[in-house]
Amino acid sequence: MPAPMGTPRARIPTGVKAGDVIEIRTLITHPMETGQRRDAAGAVIPRDIIRSFAARFDGEEVFRMELHAAVSANPFIAFPFRADRSGRFEFVWTNDAGESARLAADLRVG
């Protein structure tokens, strides 16, 4: 059974002016089990990772990341975004089993 999709969090800068290129930072709690480890009985612990991350802004995909087992537990992902207008981000993390965690966050451009 896959690990539960953990708590997603995001940090969106404030005080943003139109045209600024800002950095969006995200975190989610997840073990990112590599499939390389063995348990105490010597059995391989099956791989269970977050496989993809997608960021949409007002419904349009702006950034995506494909993750492999080498990404650390509790993945941290930071990426840039050119802030032309206020709007809503939606972030989606998806695991090997196809389960997703979602988080929405507003960007306010002054």
Binding site: F57, F63, R64, E66, H68, A70, V71, P75, A78, R82
Partner: peptide, 27 residues
């Protein structure tokens, strides 16, 4: 030299404004 060579792929669009990204990995 990791068990798998692939670590991550970042996919950008012009909306990013810059082509940069960061994360944390296992070595």
């Amino acid at each position: 030299a990791n068990p798998l060579a692939e670590v991550a792929t970042f996919r950008f669009t012009p909306a990013c404004g810059r082509a940069e990204a960061s994360t944390r990995i296992r070595l």
